[in-house]
């Protein structure tokens, strides 16, 4: 199959799903006429019409709240938040409503909706357009959380999200939309399964989303220095595939978690604790966490780069972990 982009893979997943499932609708700011702030839904209005591709006002809470109500009554809405930073305006609907309705109502009904958004640094979006807020979602029981790093995962994870009977937070990375790759249409891994992106024996890097690519670059360079690094892409943070991680750490004895979200009480804290619980006997060193700094994201490109892990930092931290 020909090369495609992460953006096109997402669009293909939405388009194919909407063709086969008439209950799917998309609602959000600029998803229709504009084609999506990052172009994911471009051209979809023409195919599906304005009843199914619905431009909304800038009202994040009702975008998510209406999606909840629609999902409870027979539609399968994809609500788009232009930036994950804006989820603060819709947190009640996501956390108190979507995530809890199945449980509060004793299992009578699920909320089959997908909240699509994007986060992360790389475009000098500054403090309110660059955050990585996945820890908030991961901390909320009742939400699935997918964070694809590749073209193939963007496609399969989004298609799979549109078949689940519970809310899925689907977080893309703004730095990945132009990523090119070969879309493998038959490579659909089970939901919640991590993937070993690179095999190695000296240490295990655990990551997801854009940081996977930095880990892969670091691993490639380190291999030339005789350091063999295994890279695990979690793909979904809920469900969390600790089995693949533990199996890897049991072989390498060293684990490093690489995340773009900020360090304190972040995803890396949970992953580190889980590795400690589940692979303690195999660890030669403490689990190392390389995460975003505990600061708001600054606008200056130089400062922004320093606020999240980069390839050099990953390499130097691996060497520290290996006492090289």
């Amino acid at each position: 199959m020909a090369e495609t982009t992460y953006r096109e893979a997402l669009r293909l997943a939405l388009t194919e799903s909407m063709r086969s499932d008439p209950s799917i609708i998309i609602l959000g700011e600029e998803v229709g006429k504009y084609g999506g702030a990052y172009g994911v839904t471009k051209g979809m209005l023409e195919e599906f019409g304005d009843a199914r591709i619905r431009d909304t006002p800038i009202s994040e809470e009702v975008i998510v709240g209406a999606a909840v109500g629609a999902a409870m009554t027979g539609l399968r809405p994809v609500a788009e938040l232009m930036y994950i930073d804006f989820v603060t305006l819709a947190m009640d609907q996501l956390v108190n409503q979507a995530a809890k309705i199945r449980y509060m109502f004793g299992g009578q009904i699920g909320v089959p909706m997908v909240l699509r958004s994007q986060g992360g640094t790389g475009r000098s979006g500054a403090a309110q357009h660059s955050q990585s807020l996945e820890a908030w979602m991961m901390h909320t029981p009742g939400l699935h959380l997918a964070m694809p790093s590749t073209v193939t995962d963007a496609y399969h994870l989004l298609k799979h999200s549109l078949t689940l009977n519970d809310p899925v937070v689907f977080l893309e990375h703004k730095g990945l939309y132009t990523l090119k790759g070969t879309l493998e249409p038959d490579k659909a891994l089970p939901w919640g399964k991590a993937e070993v992106r690179r095999q190695g024996g000296d240490c295990t890097l655990v990551s997801y989303s854009r940081m996977i690519h930095l880990c892969m670059d670091a691993a490639e360079t380190l291999s030339k220095e005789g350091i063999s690094v295994e890279v695990i892409d979690l793909r979904t943070l809920h469900p969390l595939d600790m089995q693949t991680v533990s199996e890897s750490v049991s072989r390498t004895g060293r684990a490093m978690v690489v995340t773009e979200d900020c360090l304190t009480a972040g995803v890396s804290a949970e992953l580190s604790a889980r590795i400690m619980e589940e692979a303690f006997d195999f660890l030669e060193e403490p689990v190392v966490r390389l995460s975003g700094e505990d600061i708001p994201i600054p606008v200056s490109p130089q400062l922004e780069q320093g606020s999240v892990p980069g390839v050099e930092r990953i390499m130097s931290t691996v060497k520290m972990l290996l006492r090289r």
Binding site: V64, V68, M72
Partner: peptide, 22 residues
């Protein structure tokens, strides 16, 4: 009954979605 809600105003937007379905 799409649910009683303990967040003041929490259930209001759900009828917008239900209305959209209808």
């Amino acid at each position: 009954h799409l649910g009683a809600n303990a967040i003041v105003g929490g259930g209001i937007s759900h009828v917008v979605g239900a209305g959209l379905t209808y």
